[in-house]
Computed example of a mutant assay.
Amino acid sequence: MIKTVALVSLSAGTIGEDFVKHEVNIGLKRLEQFGLHVKIMPHAMKGIEYVKNHPKERANDLLAAICDEEVDMILCAIGGDDTYRLLPYLFKNNELKEAIEKAEKRKIFLGFSDTTMNHLMLHKLGFGTFYGQSFLADVCEMEDDMLPYTKKFFEELIKTGNIKEIVPSDVWYEERTDWSESAVGTERTKHENEGFQLLQGKPVFAGKILGGCLESMYDIFDNSRYPDTISLCEKYNLFPSLEDWRGKILLLETSEEQPDPKHYRKMVETLKKVGVFDVVSGVICGKPMNELYFDEYKKIIVDVIDNPNISVVANINIGHATPRCIIPFGIEAEVDAVNQKIRFA
């Protein structure tokens, strides 16, 4: 049972801005209604500019949350685009490793999007994490309650410390275009959801799941966004080795940037060049936001992998399309497209 949650801004400092104050207040109240005590880490609410310019302080917040014996769960505020900048402050002098070793209990770590970088950082040290939801994107939902499918998994995680199985959501929601205070209480537009879609390969496959936001993983090999991403990520060996990927299930989902098919192909081809598709047991793909380019993405992933023996299942309710489930990393999983379930050991 989770009792105390540490709220961290490891990427963007959005929750410190006035324009989201109404959302933050909703989210904090909801966490309290779950019976949770919330610890807002010292720099989490400093705002976008401060957080952007102080990666060391972001790293310190993570280290402090890991070492705080009251904290049961570390909840990421939101994603962003420069989480890789925490690497020197977590690995140069083994700061993250020592914090994990000193902690008397293992914390639950939950986040998605650019938090993919943090998941990979913690994975390097054998720290299992949970992918799929964040404070601002999910707990702060402006409907009268969290979206039911999303809430189901969040409640399961805080009550049991784990996720047993995932089934598809009956519906999916269009992303909001109005985030103002006047939109509080308004419902999202929803559509019927089709369930998990087997694109190729065996319908049942197993392995530990790892991956996340495709754009974040692509940034490890590309300097288009920031000039030092490749050098920093190489220096600290952020991307797992092929031996580490062997037998795992690769999770891929796309961000709110909604990459066009040409860019999506380029990013997937980059993972192919690295050799990931030669060693994984299968691939699961999140539904893209608003289903934009969904048909194109499905054709591209099959075309680029170019191996019909690799199982690929799409339309998982994870990542940037709502609602969102939560996927444990580092736990044996079985994907069953026939029975529309992902089960965890």
Rank of each mutant, 00 (worst) to 15 (best):
K3W: 06
T4D: 04
L7N: 01
G16V: 00
E17Y: 00
L28F: 03
K29E: 15
E32D: 11
M45G: 02
M45W: 00
M45L: 13
N53V: 02
E57R: 08
A64W: 06
I66D: 04
D68Q: 09
C76E: 11
D81H: 14
D82H: 14
L96C: 12
E98M: 13
I100D: 07
R106A: 06
N118R: 03
L120G: 01
H123R: 11
H123Y: 11
Y131R: 03
A137V: 00
C140I: 01
M142L: 08
F153C: 05
K164Y: 10
V167K: 14
W172C: 02
Y173H: 06
T177Q: 06
E181I: 05
T186P: 00
T186W: 00
T189W: 01
N193L: 05
G195N: 07
L199M: 05
G201D: 02
G211N: 02
C213Y: 04
S216I: 03
S231M: 10
L232K: 06
Y236W: 14
L242E: 09
G247R: 10
L250I: 07
E253D: 15
E253S: 13
E257I: 13
K266G: 10
V268S: 10
E269I: 09
T270L: 09
K273A: 15
K273S: 15
V280W: 05
G286D: 10
G286S: 13
E291T: 14
Y297T: 12
K298E: 15
I300T: 11
D306G: 09
P308Y: 11
V313E: 11
R324M: 10
I331Q: 13
A333R: 06
A337C: 13
